[in-house]
Each structure stands twice: as C-alpha cells, then as structure tokens.
Simulated scan of single mutants.
Amino acid sequence: MENRAIDTQRGPVRGRPGKGVKRFGRVNWLGLATLTGREIRRFTNVWTQTLAAPVATALLFMAVFTLALGDQRPDVMGLPFAHFLAPGILMMTVIQNAFANTSSSILVSKVQGSIVDTLMPPLSPSELLTGFVLGGVFRGLFVAAGVAAVLFPLFGILPAHPLWALAFVLVGSALLALMGMITAILAEKFDHMAAITNFVVTPLSFLSGTFYSAAAVPEAFRILLHVNPIFYLIDGMRFGALGVSDSPPALGLAYALLAVFALGALTFRWLRTGYRLKS
C-alpha cells in the first residue's frame, strides 16, 4: 500500500497517471470529471457574480449606447444599431467570463500555495488542461444563455443561425479559457494578472468590432483588426444571431480554432514541465 501511494503521487510529476488509479482506456475519467465539476461549482455557487452581474453589465452597455446615441446613429450593415450591438456585447461578456474562470482559479491556488493539491492527483497534463478549459467553456455557455435570454427578446432578435452562434460561443470560451490559464501561469500575484487583463485582454475585446463594422475603419486598422482572433468571434456571433458578418463565418471559425490549438499546445507544454507552477 505504501509503494502504491508513492507511485500515485509521482505519476503527475512524470506526466503520467499513478498506479492503482481506476481508468477507462487511457483517460482518468473520474479525475477529469472531478476537476471539471470543481471548476463548475466555483462559479455556480456565486451565480449572482457570474450570471446576474454579466447580464446587468450587458444591459448597461446596451442602455448607454442606445440612449446616448438615440436615433442619431445610422443603421450598421443594414441593421438598427441596437441589433448590431447586441451580439457583440454578448460575445464580449462571454469571453471575459471564460477568461476570468481559469485565470482566477489557477492564480488563487498559486497565491494560496494550494496549487499542489491540483498537481498531485493522478491527472495527466492533458487531463488538467481539459478540466480547466471545460470549466471556462461551461461558464461561457452559462453567461451566453443568461445574456441572450434577456437581450434577444428585449430587442426582438431571433437567432438566424443558432448552431453557428453556439459554435462561436464554444470556441470563444475555449480560447479565452486558455488565455486565462496562460496568464495565471505567468503571473505571480494579482497585480500581474490585472496588468495583462487591462492592457491585453480588454483592448483586444473592445477593439474587435463590437461597436463598429470593419468596413467603417481605416484600411491600416482594418488589417490589424483581421489579425485579432476576438474579431472573428464577435463577427461570427453576429452572423449566428443576425445573419450578417464582415468576414465568412467558416474562415473566422477556422482562424479561432487555429488559435485554440496553438494556445492549447503551449499550455499543455507548460503543464507537462510544471513551468512556473512547481517552482
């Protein structure tokens, strides 16, 4: 029994599960489900912060822009400005919450010194990666459903392509969940995470076509806009909700998926080596 316990603890350090762990195939499904469930309970236990607050923020954005501009703002892409704005606000809220879920979970564990409780169980790097990302994806879906349930009926929006909208919510949540993991792994304290949030994540979100069409910006800025993966997430959500977009949705989804795989590979490598986690 003693040798088994030692092997179980060493498993994650070597990048493989420990002996004596019940597995189905090559995956520790019980461990993966436990980690994912923990990440989901983190935000469902405080639903007033993770659902009510994002819905209220989305409503405030809509109220400020529609009331401040009134009828002065012309139609955008042939749509009333409020209709054009709603899908972008929804996606921006989704990705911000997916980012917050993984970044806060890992960084709090690092600061409190309890990250070892996550690294020591017999979970491989891919299982750790999947568990954290799924937590962010579920929070993204949770927020998307809440915001859509309020904004879309309020402005009379009936999703034109709901499956496309769902695909972009899933991919967007996964992408920002990975960005949150990378940020938390790099950060040593909350000030570092705040700096990345304020100077990287927030500008990428706001300067991504949420409040304007790509056709309305200068050519030089339009090139930068099309490099930003968040632009394709917001543009894809607009296509799913309204049936219009600045770029082909298939191209945007492929670009976002490529970004997911790239960040996923980097995060997997850091989890496997224990970069800034085990030291």
Rank of each mutant, 00 (worst) to 15 (best):
H83C: 00
H83N: 03
H83R: 09
H83D: 07
F84T: 10
F84Q: 11
F84A: 11
F84H: 13
F84L: 13
L85W: 10
L85I: 08
L85F: 10
L85H: 05
L85Q: 06
A86I: 06
A86V: 08
A86C: 04
A86S: 09
P87E: 11
P87K: 10
P87Q: 09
G88H: 13
G88T: 11
G88C: 08
G88L: 13
G88K: 03
G88P: 13
G88I: 12
I89F: 10
I89Y: 05
M92H: 07
M92S: 14
M92Q: 14
M92V: 10
T93V: 05
V94R: 11
V94H: 11
V94K: 04
V94E: 13
I95W: 00
I95Q: 01
I95F: 01
Q96E: 03
Q96M: 04
Q96D: 01
N97A: 11
N97T: 06
A98C: 05
A98E: 09
A98W: 07
A98Y: 07
A98N: 06
A98H: 07
A98L: 02
A98F: 02
F99L: 05
F99H: 11
A100N: 14
N101Y: 00
N101L: 04
N101E: 14
T102V: 07
T102F: 07
S103Q: 08
S103C: 04
S103Y: 01
S103G: 03
S104T: 14
S104V: 11
S105L: 13
S105W: 02
I106R: 15
I106G: 15
I106M: 15
I106A: 14
L107H: 09
L107G: 12
L107C: 12
L107P: 13
L107N: 07
V108A: 13
V108P: 00
V108E: 10
S109Y: 01
S109A: 11
S109W: 00
K110G: 03
V111R: 12
V111A: 06
V111D: 04
Q112H: 08
Q112K: 14
Q112T: 15
G113L: 03
G113A: 04
G113V: 02
G113S: 03
G113D: 03
G113K: 03
S114T: 15
S114W: 05
S114E: 11
